[in-house]
């Protein structure tokens, strides 16, 4: 297939996955920031949200205070934020439109409807001059639905060939990045010594982390106990049955890269590198990770994951 088509498919998936993540992140943070101060140690919740979304630097070019109104507006609708939800949908749709024929009708109509919805929302928003909370919640719901719809209809309707593999790779490379970013920003509340501060204070932080990657229910099913920080880290890094864990993402990345290699009859740097990352995750344990530093571990992962993205681009998407 055309290298550009593959590139577009890869990026549509990334953009939609990112939009979905941002929507969840905003929702989880709204909950936490609404708690009475006594219940949470977090004073700069919205700042950490910005960091997790990777938008902290650009944000302060335009705003002074990281409060709910500013951050939500910036993450959800701001054109100046390259990875705001609206830009994710705008770019995602532009990428999708360029490769319409590689998408199934359902996938295209899903993302096109989301874009039309966004336009409607933006018009209403422009006319009202402010973002209505209720509308915002509705919009975030819509974004999540769109992402699921795209994902699901891709899963149901796409031919299992390179187009599908690139589309999936985009999902998992982005998802791994998102999970790692949340861990990176919140690592301090997951460190064992933080527990001495008193469980209940960080409890809501932990559940917020789980919520932001939609893993709260999963947590209870996996551990059958109340939320413990090391379990949160374990779940999000090492649990293969948890679909947003780093290891699960890499299971899939390796699988789809191998499928590409099989179809094309040729391996490359990205296959080798992905396998390498996966091996390291498989060999790791929570104990070791905490010992050598959660922050360092996650940091390195983010870099390796980015490098893999660059290798996939070099190997397939430039042509």
């Amino acid at each position: 297939m055309l290298a550009r088509t593959a590139d577009n498919l890869f990026w549509v998936s990334r953009y939609l996955e990112r939009a979905d993540f941002l929507a969840r992140l905003i929702e989880a943070s709204r909950r936490i920031s609404a708690l009475p101060i006594a219940y949470t140690a977090a004073r700069d919740e919205w700042k950490s949200v910005l960091m997790a979304s990777g938008a902290d630097e650009t944000f302060f070019d335009h705003f002074d205070i990281a409060d709910e109104a500013n951050v939500t507006a910036f993450l959800a609708f701001d054109e100046r934020n390259p990875s705001s939800i609206r830009n994710c949908i705008e770019f995602g749709r532009a990428n999708a439109r360029a490769v319409r024929t590689a998408l199934t009708t359902e996938m295209w109509e899903g993302i096109n409807s989301a874009w039309l919805e966004l336009k409607k929302f933006e018009t209403a928003h422009r006319e009202a001059g402010r973002i209505d909370r209720e509308d915002l919640i509705g919009f975030l719901e819509y974004v999540k639905t769109t992402s699921s719809l795209y994902d699901g209809s891709g899963y149901r309707s796409m031919l299992r060939n390179d187009a599908y593999y690139f589309s999936r790779l985009g999902v998992y490379v982005e998802r791994a990045d998102n999970t790692a970013r949340v861990l990176d920003v919140k690592y301090h509340v997951l460190l064992p010594e933080q527990e001495t501060v008193g469980g209940s204070v960080d409890y809501f932080q932990w559940s917020a982390i789980l919520r932001s990657v939609s893993a709260l229910t999963a947590y209870h099913w996996v551990y059958r106990e109340s939320i413990k920080p090391w379990n949160v880290a374990d779940l999000l890094i090492l649990r293969p049955e948890m679909p947003r864990s780093l290891i699960s993402c890499y299971d899939n990345i390796v699988r789809f890269l191998d499928a590409l290699a099989a179809q094309y009859g040729r391996q490359g740097a990205s296959q080798r590198h992905a396998r390498n990352i996966k091996r390291r995750l498989e060999g790791a344990s929570t104990g070791e990770i905490f010992q050598s530093g959660l922050h360092e571990f996650v940091d390195e992962f983010v870099n390796e994951n980015n490098r893999l993205g660059a290798e996939i681009t070099e190997q397939y998407l430039i042509g």
């Binding site: 297939m1 055309l2 290298a3 550009r4 088509t5 593959a6 490769v99 319409r100 024929t101 390179d162 690139f166 590409l260 094309y264 040729r266 397939y316 998407l317 430039i318 042509g319």
Partner: peptide, 27 residues
């Protein structure tokens, strides 16, 4: 392109080498 079952290319997808036109693919 879809109805014909052929690739839809933009100029940047094409490369000309020694008077032969190619398209850049994942392979």
């Amino acid at each position: 392109a879809d109805k014909l079952g052929v690739e839809l290319v933009e100029g940047r997808d094409l490369a000309v080498r020694d008077d032969v036109v190619y398209m850049r693919t994942t392979e």
